[in-house]
Amino acid sequence: MPKKILVIDDDEDIRNLLYTTLSAEGFDVITMGSGKEALDFLMDIDVDCILLDVMMPEMDGWETLRMIRASEATRNLPVIMVTVKDSRIDKLTAIKEKATDYITKPFSTEELVAKVREVLK
């Protein structure tokens, strides 16, 4: 049974890219345009891994992550943060907010797939 991956990104092109890339690798990919939408979805459906964009309007990635970690059902779910900031401050935030891993834009598709496989182990 293919692993379910939830992609949360406000940018449609990025959503499509991730969908195409991960589907090609045999994953079951679901995409969501906002953190709120994704949180509603997670109430009913279980997933194996989440790819979460940091910079999003309204509710940003960190806030979404906090909500995910606050819920009993998704507390230990692997979450990979997708960020453009490559600074130590963001790395520290990632550790503090209990993200599983993070990947910085622009990333290569190989790198992304490798990271997803790593967290799913």
């Binding site: 092109d13 990025i14 890219l17 834009k105």
Partner: peptide, 24 residues
């Protein structure tokens, strides 16, 4: 601006990679 620029770059580079690897 730099952050904004990186998102479209990611999509563009990602798709090229997909095409080159014959995934599309």
């Amino acid at each position: 601006i730099s952050h904004e620029l990186k998102t479209p770059l990611t999509a563009a580079i990602g798709y090229i990679s997909l095409i080159k690897r014959g995934k599309i």
